[in-house]
């Protein structure tokens, strides 16, 4: 089992965390003007890269706080974690 470095608690076992999928998908600024296709992309479509991916994780069995991780989906290696009040990470 790999260790994931929670930005608040430090390295903890993977079982303490839950996955939140792609990071940085904002709620539409003006929902009323979205077409069906734009809604579909907001609701159902997420990036699925092989390689670096900015993701949300939650330390659900620990401090229960969300954070952002840059992780490689091919190697599963966590490259960087950041708190939500840190500047937005760039992949």
């Amino acid at each position: 089992m790999q260790l994931i470095a929670c930005p608040w608690c430090g390295p903890r076992e993977e079982v303490e965390f839950s996955y939140g999928g792609q990071a940085g998908v904002p709620y539409p600024a003006d929902p009323a003007v979205l077409s069906d296709e734009q809604w579909a992309h907001y609701v159902f479509f997420r990036d699925n890269p092989k390689g670096r991916f900015a993701e949300r994780w939650n330390h659900s069995a620990g401090c229960r706080r969300w954070f952002t991780a840059i992780r490689d989906t091919a190697t599963y290696r966590f490259e960087r974690v950041s708190r939500l009040d840190d500047p937005k990470p760039v992949t």
Partner: peptide, 13 residues
């Protein structure tokens, strides 16, 4: 495994 992955392996837990 809960996370996205292409590694053809998963976690032992």
């Amino acid at each position: 495994d809960s996370y996205n992955g292409y590694g053809q392996r998963g976690a032992f837990h």
